[in-house]
């Protein structure tokens, strides 16, 4: 069965995210001034052919660890629909 797996990759919380800062500046300029912080990451969708949701999750974990995220600067979360 094909599982659609979402991998959310975000910059580590302790790291400065200049992209998020720039977006927050844009929001303030728009008049949306109550936003306290913005962080920008990536959402990656994988279509995984696997026997079970657990297997699909395991494959996504491996992909996340080996390529999709760099643990020095990012963390990732997996969601199966």
């Amino acid at each position: 069965m094909i599982y659609s797996v979402q991998v959310k990759v975000m910059p580590l919380k302790e790291l400065l995210d200049p992209q998020g800062k720039a977006v927050m500046g844009g929001l303030k300029n728009l008049g949306i001034g109550t936003v306290e912080d913005v962080r920008v990451g990536k959402n990656i969708t994988l279509q995984i052919n696997a026997a079970s949701p657990d297997e699909a999750k395991q494959i996504a974990e491996e992909a996340g660890k080996k390529l999709l995220a760099n643990p020095v600067m990012e963390y990732f979360e997996i969601n199966i629909n």
Partner: peptide, 17 residues
């Protein structure tokens, strides 16, 4: 080299974007 783990650490987006 950093991505290949031949060197430690990572190189991030410039502070001033």
């Amino acid at each position: 080299l950093c991505e290949s783990h031949l060197l430690p650490g990572a190189v991030l987006r410039n502070k001033n974007q």
